[in-house]
Structure formats: structure tokens, C-alpha cells
Amino acid sequence: MFAFPAISAFILLESRDVVNGLITQPFMTALFLIICGYDPVSILLTASLTQLIYLNRQPSGASLFPEYPFGFFIVTAAAGTQVYSLLSYSLITILIISVSFLTSHYLKMKRIFFEKHRERLKFHKRFPNVISAVFFSYISYLLLSLVLYPALYFFLSFTDKLNLLNLNSADGRMIPVILCILLSSRYLYFNLSRKNE
């Protein structure tokens, strides 16, 4: 219950604040989850879908950029190791989008708070200090993960137990595969219709 929130906080730190070496992108963290025993098809399909949803978004300055590497990891980690059903895929996709969006707001609040108390949280002797900045940022992300992970875990476990809508006869992969086709087609059209790179 503590390991995944700690890793999620690290993912948010790496993808947003330090290094930015793409090691926390969904296609990488999906491999980590598979090593941990998660179902490969469910995880890789969800990772591909998440990448495609946010492929044409770019983090720029003060805009609220959805923190999808964090959203993907914490939601799929909380979903457990089972093969996703149609309902699971739908719920997980909605939750990844919601958590990513909420995290961007949390990040904005965190930045405003850190700026207000920068002498204590980011500075040492009135000069930027990387150790305290990284430490306090990680702690703030860990707090968020420790709240989100159990909530997601219990919510997804609860919905998994309910045999809602009696959709078990349908193949769950239908939703992400169709969405991936639509999103990649849209992305291709968007790129081909753009004149300058």
C-alpha cells in the first residue's frame, strides 16, 4: 500500500520537475507494472491509449498540463493485476483523464504555495537550493499519492465486485482499440493538415 504511492510520487517528480528523461512515460512504467505481475495486454493497451490521448499536448509555461504519466501509473497500479473487463477499461480511462487533470491543478497550487514560502521550501541562505526543493516537492507529491492511491484502490475494487451492466460477454479490449484508432487517425489528420513544423 505504500510502495506504489512512493513510486507514483517519484514519477510525478521526474516527469514534471527533474531530469525529464522520459523514463516515467506510460510506455516505460507499463513495463515496470508487467514485471510486477500485472496483465500485459490490459496494461500495454491502456498505456498506448494514454499516450495517444495526450500526444498532441505540450507542456508550456503556466498552462495546466495534464500529468498523464502520474495519472496512468497510479490508476493502473490501483486497478490490480486482473484482466480488464469492458467496464474496467472504461472506468480506468475516465479515471486516468480525471486524475491527470486534477494533478495539474494540484501542481499549480503547490507552485503557488512554494512561492509563498520559498525561503523555507526552496531556498537556503536566500539562494535556490536543489536539495530542499527536491525534498519538499517529493513530500508534497507523496502526500497527494497517499490520498489518491487508497481512494482509487477501494473504488476500483468495489466496482470490480459489482457485476454492473452484465457486460462480461463483451471483449473489454473493444473500447481502447477503437479509441486508439480514432485518436491516431485524428492525430495523423492534425499533423498532415499543419503546414509548418
Binding site: E115, K122, A133
Partner: peptide, 24 residues
Amino acid sequence: RTYFIRIFYNYNNLFGEGLCYCIF
């Protein structure tokens, strides 16, 4: 040090603090 430039990003001076940290 430039790997850590974003950790100091803020809405007041954007990368100003990060730049100070990098060039010091």
C-alpha cells in the same frame, strides 16, 4: 545542474530562480 532547472519553476519569474541555480 540544468537537469534541475524546472524544479524552481514558478509563476513569478518562471525559470529565473532555476537559471540562478544553474549558472552560480
